[in-house]
Amino acid sequence: MATNPSSSETTVSLKLLVDKSSNKVVFAEAGKEFVDFLFGLLQVPLGSIIGLLRDNDLVAGSGSLVRVHESIQNLDPSYLLPNQTKDSLLNPKPALQSSTLTPPLLQSFVSSDQENRASFSPASSHHAHVLGYTTSQPPVLEKGYVRGVVTYMVMDDLTVKPMSTISCITLLNTLNIKDIGSVQEKKVEIDIKKSLELIKVSLDSTTVLTDVFLGHME
């Protein structure tokens, strides 16, 4: 299920507001695509994430969970129960929708058998009937999880909230940033490889955006 992220052309734009005096990200201005990626990560099994990180040399050598992953790889299949396989542990199926409805940056986590699933389930078919639609003409479903007409604030620690003028001013005051001139914009592009770096750093950091885009990984 792991892929080579560098072969993908999928990218998502993110606008960072950087405090030049401290060289830290104040927050990021994000659209639906990036927020969908962050929220969708909660539906991806840990085994799949570790596998992709390992395949792209992004797992820290001191991490212990990767040792569990390696242990399964090295284990003789005869030690597993008859109804279990190594692949089901190393490459578990994510709880994502079909690839046609999965946010672009998460499509590497969708297994091939999921790509052929129907785009709406019997439950959604029931809701469509209640709303007056016929099953032969289901409503068009939007990819992801959040509405696309909203701009979102993503904090350095990946806290997400709808963006507003008041919330921006409050945050600047909270961080004691009085000189607006010390804040500059920086636009970055996130591809599949960069998204994996974000996942890796988020496992042990609360300054993820700063570490990835302004720190040693940049």
Rank of each mutant, 00 (worst) to 15 (best):
A95G: 14
S98I: 04
L158H: 08
V160N: 00
P139A: 01
M155L: 12
A28E: 06
D211Q: 07
N74W: 03
F27N: 03
P139L: 02
L198S: 01
A28C: 01
V35G: 03
G215V: 04
P77Q: 02
E70G: 02
S164F: 02
T85F: 07
A28R: 03
L214S: 01
M1D: 13
H129E: 13
L17S: 12
H69D: 14
L196S: 06
E197R: 05
L96A: 05
T170P: 05
K20V: 09
L141V: 13
T207F: 11
A128N: 06
E9T: 15
P103D: 03
V110F: 06
G47V: 02
V160W: 00
D179I: 01
T206L: 10
V201W: 03
T174Y: 11
F120P: 08
R67D: 13
T11V: 10
I72S: 06
G31L: 04
R54Q: 15
S202K: 00
G47H: 04
T210C: 05
I192C: 10
F213Q: 08
E197V: 02
I177A: 05
N23V: 02
A60Q: 09
V183R: 10
L80Y: 08
L172D: 07
T102D: 04
D156L: 01
I190M: 06
N176V: 09
L196Q: 10
L214V: 00
E197Q: 11
K193H: 06
S205P: 03
G132Q: 00
F34Q: 07
V130N: 08
V130D: 10
K178E: 14
Q43R: 12
V212I: 12
S13P: 12
K20P: 09
V66Q: 11
Q97V: 12
E197P: 04
L89F: 11
V212Q: 04
S88W: 05
P104E: 11
Q107K: 15
N116T: 15
K161T: 12
N116R: 09
G31V: 08
T11D: 09
V208H: 01
T210G: 02
G40C: 05
L38D: 03
K20S: 14
F37C: 01
S62D: 10
L16I: 09
P94A: 06
P104D: 15
